[in-house]
Design a protein around this nucleic acid. Structure first.
Length: 476
RNA sequence: GCACCCAUCGUCUAGCCCGGUCUAGGACACCGCCUUUUCACGGCGGUAACAGGGGUUCGAAUCCCCUUGGGUGUACCA
């Protein structure tokens, strides 16, 4: 049997970091097992679902490189892949259950429902509508009321028994018999409910493994009940640990940037995000930590999922981003820099050779490509960067001495100084002005860059435009 | 309230299933040193954890029980 897995988001917002991780796990599992990874859109909540979000989610998944072979955009053998287009199926199956006596129309009003849940609470039970009075209502009576246009929902007739789940992450899980009441399948507006659609679709789409977040664990019970009613073998389940924020609560918007879209905007690398997310709740068998998702499909197994919730830490993500940035071919890095820097930035006008050299040294100094602009200042800036150390360097007598010499040299320049020229300046200062050691190098740096620290001057100075260099000479 | 889940350095985790090789390993962050006549990168090193209590056992981070702490769920949301 070929492995079939799915990612089934609701288009009620942008793709969440947690969703991205779930999608990644499913994707990896499918790849590892030569299976199919499909995308299903769960848009049964008409109020909150938006087409716009569906489009954005697909874009975000593609950006991450998580590709599906069946889905709402590309179709497939088991479509349609949008739940809003499968309404007839859900209704049909619901009434099938009704006719078999496994579900029933229920005419309870909101007030009656409220009363039921109060009663349950009073009995120290969960506030469910356990069994309603319409549970054993004669079907022909019910149908009459339905035909008369009375409001109703279809409820599932739950069995009072313990259900057992063998979960790939959680192990053996027992669900007590009072955990759910007669839950709703079809709402009064005719729309089916998540737990029900999900079960039908996983079944109809021949899903073999459901990999999802732990918050769905209680839902699995309902789905198990449904499969039992339909006489179908359920898929295998793996409920991964949750992603949590600083306060140890489920990661949500209030924890900061939690949508993939935000990370795209902040110019993170997709592979860095994948890499970091993958390691939140899963571990590499050889404890490797920096990798691309394609590197690990061979070793990806579900038995390496960690059960405990994982705290999302942007600082560590930044580290991963830096690592991936450094691994990038230089041409790609230059492309990234050009995209990220403003169009009027002087970087844009430099030669290809110049850009390559610059990226080669500056990539070591940044974790995010957006930090590049600040770091390039050492080449383009004409303002003095004051710091205690900078002030101190200028308080040395030697600095003033070499300043006038360097100023002369710079003003005579007609093209950027070569590394050889720079070297000659240093030699001159050493032999003629008798300055050496720290005062020599620190001093030259202060004079030429108006700053106390930065990358190797031998490389930086030849990259610095003459005009910039000359202007700097007027600042002291 | 009730049900379920979880528990190793501040954080992500390895080890746990198949007890001894664990004076508990790696990574982020932090600190120090080396390298670089600066900064960063890199290298080396350091601080830092088996929640607590009972068992079982010659021996427990590993198995069992309890306590505590945390989380999730409890809908005509997904």
């Amino acid at each position: 049997m070929t492995v079939r897995v799915r990612f089934a988001p609701s288009p009620t917002g942008y793709l969440h970091i947690g969703g991205a991780r779930t999608a990644l796990y499913n994707y990896l599992f499918a790849k590892k097992n030569g299976g199919v990874f499909l995308l299903r859109i769960e848009d049964t909540d008409q109020e909150r679902s938006k087409k716009e979000y569906e489009i954005e989610m697909m874009k975000d998944l593609k950006w991450l490189g998580i590709d599906w072979t069946e889905g709402p955009d590309c179709g497939g053998e088991y479509g349609p892949y949008r739940q809003s287009e499968r309404m007839n199926l859900y209704k049909e199956k619901a009434w099938e259950l009704v006719s078999e006596g496994k579900a029933y129309p229920c005419f309870l009003t909101e007030a009656e429902l409220e009363e039921l849940s109060q009663k349950a609470i009073a009995e120290n039970k969960a506030p469910h509508a356990y069994h309603t009075k319409f549970r054993d209502f004669p079907l022909y009576e019910a149908k009459k009321r339905v035909d008369a246009g009375e409001d109703y929902v279809i409820r599932f007739k739950t069995q009072q028994k313990v259900y057992h789940l063998k979960d790939h992450v959680r192990g053996d899980v027992d669900f007590g018999e009072d955990m759910v009441g007669d839950f709703v399948l079809l709402r009064s507006n005719g729309m089916p409910v998540y737990n029900y659609c999900c079960a039908i679709d996983d079944w109809m789409m021949k899903i073999t493994h459901v990999i999802r977040a732990e918050e769905h664990l209680p839902n699995t019970l309902r789905q198990l009940m449904l499969y039992e009613a339909f006489g179908v073998t359920p898929p295998q389940y793996a409920h991964c640990s949750l992603l949590v924020g600083e306060d140890r609560q489920k990661l949500s918007k209030r924890h900061g940037a939690t949508s993939v879209k935000q990370y795209i905007e902040m110019k993170y690398l997709p592979e860095a995000l994948n890499n970091y997310l993958c390691l939140l709740g899963w571990s590499h068998p050889d404890e490797k930590d920096i990798f691309n998702k394609e590197d690990i499909v061979d070793v990806f197994t579900m038995d390496r999922f960690n059960k405990a919730p994982a705290l999302y830490d942007v600082q560590k993500l930044n580290f991963f981003n830096g690592q991936h940035l450094r691994k990038l071919p230089i041409a790609e890095l230059v492309g990234l820099a050009s995209d990220c820097l403003p169009s009027h930035h002087p970087f844009q006008n430099q030669t290809a050779e110049w850009k390559n050299q610059a990226m080669e040294i500056f990539k070591e100094k940044i974790q995010l490509i957006t930090e590049l602009e600040a770091v390039l200042e050492i080449i383009f800036r004409t303002e003095v960067m004051t710091s205690d150390e900078y002030q101190e360097i200028w308080s040395w007598e030697t600095t003033g001495q070499m300043a006038s010499y360097l100023k002369e040299q710079v003003m005579a320049l007609t093209a950027p100084a070569t590394a050889e020229q720079f070297q000659a300046w240093g030699d001159h200062i050493k032999t003629e002005l008798k300055i050496k050691g720290k005062p020599l190098f620190k001093g030259m740096r202060a004079v030429l860059t108006l700053e106390a620290e930065g990358p190797d001057l031998k490389i930086v100075i030849p990259l610095t435009p003459v005009a910039v260099l000359k202007e700097r000479m007027t600042k002291f």
